[in-house]
Design a protein around this nucleic acid. Structure first.
Lengths: 339, 339
DNA sequence: GTTTAGCACTACTAATTTATGAGTGCTAAA
DNA sequence: TTTAGCACTCATAAATTAGTAGTGCTAAAC
């Protein structure tokens, strides 16, 4: 257990480093505490020995270690309410009756990215618990038609497909067969069901069944694959001194472009102790090596769940993130989404 | 008019600079031409005097000026056929019966971005010449429903909206009114028509018309605004030495994220002479200041038009782009799209 | 009158030096 | 336990040096 003064010093160092991204000197600290720089220095040394602080070189000031950030987040951080003005802006988005929920979410995370200068990520509900509600085919011209698929929760997917030399009648027959046979099927089982239950029947009753079957099959598999991801404000990384190196940027951007990597954001960290969980509000914090994406970033995330939708929203920034602000913002957004 | 040898030298310099991004020396050139470096030097000087070449400092080799690139593109460049292997890969995309046209386009431009290391942009057809074909409403639960709008060319837009305390009946009435009144209207006139022709009528026949009207109004205006843009391979800029500076990257990325800036890519350059047009195939080339986006890039673009769709595809790279390859690829893609 | 060899000159690059200063650690006195 | 004082370290920036890849020019060679 740390002494009161050690806590104070650590807190000051973390907060100062978050602000300026420069190693923090004993002098700067001693000005805010009523003691001499020498005293602070020996305390700092102690904190370094237990691994909460680090030096960049022998005679530099101190920088928080990952363990230091973790300790700060778990024990020292006081959650910081948003400026009234910012809160208002966010509320305005959610109060705007003209916006659909999904638009509210993306707009608000866009705003958060701007307010904080960090990158935000929305990982939409994979639609795995949606049930197939309806399919519909709209003819465009002789050879083309648009297939529309709707789920019970209101997700829509569509695709324009070409079928050559297939009669309108046959298509209609197929549509009504599908509508009869697999409505109500969970969307991620549709492909299988289509193959094993519908295909044999189409084969019997519909001419040119191969072509038609293929067309529909691909529309459905598209549906299952698309779990919408939205990364907002990637450019913010370009503002941060810790990412001033073009190669570091390349590394981060490649990760942020990779669906598989992003999906990993949704995973809970499997750790011994506390799951990165910020006790109170289901906000999870993954600092540096704690996250699965990149050792130089921190990810703060939460999940939301509404009647029609669920997903994960995350904020990605440097390890010296403004934890106190970001946690508060995420809490706020989560609340607003869920009501 | 330039002499044969001047042309040869200019061509060599441009091509060499495209390859290595380093100022080209007289020595390097004289090895490939049967004359001494001194001769080359005096020729280079002449070319510099007419503004086709530039120096980076007093004793550096030469670099093509924008005018130099332009001259190269207009007079010296020989279009370079793709490697058979690359051509095959592209063809495979277009021959794949399982893919819709729009998927072919994005997949092939993804591939081109990888093959060339440049960024590609697809500016989809704004749907302005689409006609409204159908609207449909699918109830989700008591308060929510999904509105689907389809145009005659098979574009689909949808949105889940919330309406509190509005009866199903009233909504159905509205839908059938809209379907009766404005089917066949060009999509970008729908909003106006909705306001001046439909609203008054809804007002008369439908209870709670304000709420319902508003909901629909916003679905339609969304439709008009979404003209789909797709920027592929932005990260490629990070590989190019001319964009090694983080601030330059920031500048470019901000532009590539800005819809308005991107829209400008579709505009034809309004110039005195030749419109940047590569005479033969409707491939347009805009070098540096010739383009509206950024002085340090070249944009090579073309437009395509099919029965159901039209749009612009563009390739954005450094001024020392591999013009000969890119032009050929764009021609190839354009052809494939259009058939 | 082109072409070329030869040479003086320029300025980029990388390595080395120098100076400055912001920071620490340690010791001994308060 | 705290603090003043001092030696020491190392990053940063500026200045120096050396090397070299390139040019421009001139005068001779073709």
């Amino acid at each position: 257990m740390l002494t009161k003064r050690e806590n104070d010093i650590l807190k000051l160092i973390v907060e100062q480093y978050i602000k300026l991204a420069k190693p923090v000197s004993s002098n700067l600290i001693c000005k805010r505490l009523k003691c001499s720089s020498a005293t602070v220095r020996s305390e700092m040394k102690a904190l370094e020995e237990i691994g909460l602080l680090e030096k960049t070189h022998t005679s530099s000031g101190r920088v928080p270690s990952e363990k230091g950030y973790r300790y700060y987040v778990d024990n020292l951080m006081e959650i910081k309410k948003m400026k009234a003005e910012d809160m208002l802006k966010l509320q305005r988005i959610f109060k705007n009756q003209e916006l659909v929920l999904s638009d509210c979410i993306s707009k608000s995370l866009q705003l958060i990215s701007d307010m904080t200068s960090y990158t935000t990520v929305i990982l939409g509900s994979s639609s795995h618990d949606n049930l197939l509600k309806k399919i519909e085919v709209i003819p465009i011209d002789e050879a083309n038609m648009t297939v529309i698929v709707v789920t019970d929760k209101g997700h829509v997917e569509h695709k324009t497909i070409s079928l050559e030399d297939v009669s309108q009648k046959e298509i209609e027959k197929t549509v009504s067969l599908i509508n009869n046979l697999i409505i109500g099927t969970p969307i991620d089982e549709v492909s299988t069901k289509l193959e094993f239950e519908v295909k044999p029947i189409i084969g019997k009753y519909v001419d040119q069944h191969e072509q038609i079957y293929n067309a529909f099959y691909h529309v459905f598999s598209d549906f299952t694959e698309n779990n919408h991801v939205n990364v907002v404000g990637k450019n913010k990384f370009l503002e941060l001194p810790e990412f001033a190196d073009i190669n570091k940027i390349k590394e981060i951007y490649n990760k942020l472009d990779d669906k598989e990597t992003l999906r990993r954001i949704t995973e809970k960290r499997a750790t011994e102790t506390d799951d990165g969980d910020d006790s109170s509000h289901n906000i999870e914090i993954y600092i540096g090596e704690e996250n699965q994406i990149d050792d130089d970033v921190t990810i703060i995330k939460t999940t939301y769940k509404t009647k029609t939708d669920e997903g994960t929203i995350a904020i990605i920034g440097p390890k010296r993130m403004e934890y106190d602000r970001v946690v508060n913002m995420l809490e706020f957004i989560k609340e607003n989404i869920e009501k």
